[in-house]
Design a protein around this nucleic acid. Structure first.
Length: 469
RNA sequence: GCCCCGAUGGUGUAGUGGCCUAUCAUGCAGCCCUGUCGAGGCUGCGACCCGGGUUCAAAUCCCGGUCGGGGCGCCA
């Protein structure tokens, strides 16, 4: 399941199960102590088979009554599924299963012939969600019991993959000279307008949960950090109820000085390219686990196809044209809605940028060049989106670095510049042109894992009706 | 906020007014067998979301509620 060759032994075990699986031939006869969950316990007479699973794999423990203390044998033999136990014994080659004549013999497998052991905890039965059951459990039931759901192989694999994706993204950005920061999640004012914030009390002062690190990562860049990134939570009090929205989500953000929108689009596509390439090269075993599950559900396998860079750029103007050609009704200046994205996705099924949105649709901090107008005269901006198929992954752009323009933008969007002095003050004393983006981590994971719902790839999702567990 | 759909043992399901003291799988309990291999065999346990209505008769039809799913909107 995962590489544990470098894991040190602990108080509870001398080896991980993964270490025994991957080095079985060399370990035959060696005494080991392993610990794990009993996936199944079979046998009610003089012998007993326990399929023991830890976070690195599973192996069969073989118990013979005559080899153990009676009380130990009884305790383990009568253990319920998912009870935890530790066992000590010698590694042995497992007897090969009977195979139909003519079929190839399976690769060798190993087991532990138990000499002593201890039942650590007993799992209550029945389990609210079976870990290895051949039944398709509803998402809601699974999320109510996420601690058990997570024990399922493909679910576990998704979250290990998530960790890898963040690791590869981090490594890539660091290699491009970015430094990791953390911005405050408790903020004083509705920082951007638009979206609804969750109010809270900060001692005696009303405050909000942050909807985005946007203004703070810009301040870090204005402060001279040049290139920063942050992987952190964002909170939005929107009553949406879709497969791709949550009220708390992890946003992967960057901001870089002396860059325009095209420059940071380059950072983004290079990072995604690196992530896909690394997953394809190093984590195909996780994708295989996911695909085994998908196969059992009659779903097409996911394929990690490393995307070619540069990604296509389909400007907002072109996007509008594609939507119209596809029969969609859209006016210049309208948002590109979900069903419009379906039309665009028919032509561009993979990653594609949509740059140069109308300024009227972008927040006050997005930069525009006065001379850049659409054919019918509308003011364009340097804001962009990155979509995969119909789904928006990223929103970003070059930021407005001119103090006076910023204040004008605020006013023209109905916001009071006085509420934003903590931010605009950062632009008073010389500001570099800069750009950045924010990427939805879970949305990227949906693409990579084929998950049809963000909730699948978020450990404990927070949506309109779920605050627990 | 709008539209559509759904709710049956622990879990996932069958069910379209009487054939339902409700199907199947999985699970759970027990027994048999036992170096099993998704082990197998046998026996048993366990359910119609809540409230009202229609009907001789409701899991099934109607109304309300609750919860869930899908789509849309809203949404940097």
């Amino acid at each position: 399941m995962r590489d544990s060759d470098n894991w040190a032994s602990t108080f509870y075990r001398s080896h991980t199960i993964g270490q025994i699986i991957s080095n079985g031939e060399d370990m035959i006869g060696q005494e080991v102590t392993i610990a794990g969950y009993a996936e199944s316990v079979r046998g009610r007479g003089g012998i007993c088979f326990v399929m023991l699973r830890d976070g690195t794999g599973k192996i069969q423990a073989f118990l013979k009554r005559e080899n153990l203390e009676d009380s130990t044998f009884e305790a383990i033999q009568s253990a319920s599924r998912e009870s935890t136990m530790v066992v000590t014994g010698k590694v042995a080659k497992k007897r090969p299963p009977k195979t139909p004549e003519g079929s190839p013999s399976p690769p060798p497998e190993y087991e532990v012939t138990v000499a002593s052991g201890e039942l650590l905890t007993t799992a209550h039965a029945p389990l609210p969600v079976g870990v290895i059951d051949d039944v398709n459990v509803g998402l809601d039931t699974r999320l109510d019991n996420r601690h058990l759901d997570l024990r399922r192989r493909h679910v576990n694999a998704m979250f290990i993959l998530r960790s890898k994706v963040l690791q590869y993204g981090r490594e890539h950005l660091i290699q491009e000279g970015f430094n990791e920061i953390n911005s405050p999640k408790i903020i004083a004012s509705a920082s951007e307008g638009g979206t609804n914030l969750f109010p809270m009390m900060y001692f005696d002062t009303p405050a909000y949960l942050s909807q985005s690190p946007q203004l703070y990562k810009q301040l870090a860049v204005l402060g001279g950090l040049e290139r920063v990134f942050e992987i952190g939570p964002a909170f939005r009090a929107e009553k949406h109820d879709t497969y791709r929205h949550l009220n708390e989500f992890v946003s992967f953000d960057i901001e870089a000085a002396w860059c325009d929108d095209e420059d940071v689009m380059g950072v983004l596509e290079r990072m995604i390219h690196t992530i896909w390439k690394s997953v394809a090269e190093q984590d195909s075993h996780l994708i295989e686990i996911i695909n085994e599950y998908r196969d059992s559900q009659d779903l097409d396998p996911v394929v990690v196809e490393v995307p070619k860079i540069p990604f296509p750029r389909i400007s907002y103007d072109e996007a509008v044209k594609i939507v119209r050609e596809g029969g969609g009704a859209i006016e210049w200046g309208d948002d590109i809605e979900s069903h419009h994205c379906d039309l665009i996705a028919e032509k561009h099924p993979g990653f594609h940028f949509i740059p140069r949105w109308p300024m009227s649709m972008k927040p006050f901090y997005i930069h525009h060049k006065e001379q850049e107008k659409s054919a019918d005269g509308g003011q364009l901006s340097r804001g962009f989106d990155l979509n995969y198929g119909r789904d928006e992954m990223t929103s970003g752009g070059q930021r407005e670095h001119r103090f006076e323009v910023l204040e004008n933008n605020l006013r023209s969007m109905g916001l009071d510049p006085n509420d934003f002095t903590f931010y605009t003050d950062g632009f008073r004393y010389g500001a570099p042109p800069h750009a950045g983006w924010g990427l939805g981590v879970a949305r990227l994971l949906m693409v990579l894992t084929g998950a049809g719902n963000v909730r699948e790839v978020v450990l404990f999702p927070r949506d309109r009706s779920r605050v627990t567990p």
